[in-house]
Design a protein around this nucleic acid. Structure first.
Lengths: 197, 197
DNA sequence: AATGTACTAGAATTAATATTCTAATAAATA
DNA sequence: TATTTATTAGAATATTAATTCTAGTACATT
């Protein structure tokens, strides 16, 4: 049924990610994405209704993949050890996927998805992200403290997500990747934030 | 000598900051800044050679002010206690100046100053920031560990700057301000990262 | 081989914004 | 009060980038 495609969605989205990683969101113009991926502008619009939908899909792909890794890691036996492992997973992820993590950590959702009128499927995917993260943290609080309240939630968020994010960010900003030493600091900080009073 | 001005630089820059805090950098168009501040576009260009120069000045004002506070706090007697005080100063600053801290923490320098060809004075001010921060951290390393090396520098940067930044960021992103509880977590994390092995 | 259909192509159009330009205005000084 | 000049005003222009449109292309199925 019809001609087979010469340029895949993946090529397009990857090109956009590289452009953002190198020069920020504003560098990922439709013309630039076309040039980098080899696909003509017409083909971009054949696949995506708009630039915003293209960038939103890129963003959602990344976050979903990352969050899936977090969630499964935090599911370990000992909640404390699972928390540490999750924090370290996040740091390692940025080491292994510097382009993707630059996009994720250095640019804000608003820059990629400014309006609320995304194509339905994308809007649904976007709406699931935060609840899923909340559910993950809630589970942790229940297992670790035996109680879920907003202070615990914030505390867990800082220890498990915030600290590794920041630890990586300062390197990613400078075009580097967090060195191995950082892992030890992240682990300590994570444990310190979660420790009993 | 000539007509006195009706709209100050400060009004203009403040309006730009509010717009950015509310809607991101892209919301701070010259038209929007003009509307919010009351000044007509012509007046904006009378004071600033370009939008970029206007935003750069805003950014530099904020960072310089913030960094001055950091530097003087980190100068205390006991290096460890001074480090903790500095980290807490940063968190409190975001609590007291939510608009300014949103601009500083949520948006990247590149978004505000994309080119390298800023008017000379601004370029000079921009060039001083990072060295000044480095000097500050270097002094801390010398006093606390007795030795300055890149691992120490990174570690100090995480403990003193990174951790409070992240702790505030997660609230600022949601349009909130870090609650008082956060201070205790920041202090612990700061001490943990700086603790002996 | 003929035909249908998704896809490629990229030029033309539109939309949004920064910037320029020319003409008023009003305060300070002589 | 006359004059000077920084400043206000905002319409006109230029620029940049998204989006649309029309035509061609090649694969898959019949």
């Amino acid at each position: 049924m019809g001609r087979s495609s010469k340029y895949s969605k993946e090529q397009i989205v990857t090109s956009a990610a590289e452009l953002i990683a190198e020069g920020g969101v504003q560098a990922a113009t439709m013309t630039a994405i076309a040039k980098r991926s080899g696909a003509p502008i017409g083909s971009l619009y054949h696949r995506y209704p708009s630039r915003e939908a293209l960038l939103a899909e890129l963003w959602l792909d990344l976050i979903e993949q990352f969050q899936a890794g977090l969630t499964s890691t935090l599911d370990g036996d000992s909640p404390l050890e699972a928390a540490v492992a999750t924090a370290l997973y996040a740091v390692r992820w940025t080491r292994e996927k510097p382009v993707e993590s630059r996009v994720m950590l250095l640019f804000h959702r608003r820059e990629l998805m400014q309006s609320d009128d995304l194509p339905g499927e994308l809007a649904e995917r976007a709406a699931k992200l935060e609840p899923q993260l909340g559910e993950m943290l809630r589970g942790f609080c229940r297992r670790y403290w035996g109680e879920v309240n907003s202070a615990n939630m914030e505390r867990a968020r800082l220890a498990i997500l915030g600290i590794p994010a920041e630890s990586a960010r300062s390197y990613l900003e400078r075009g580097k990747t967090p060195p191995a030493l950082v892992d030890a600091w992240v682990e300590r900080a994570c444990r310190a934030v979660l420790a009993d009073d």
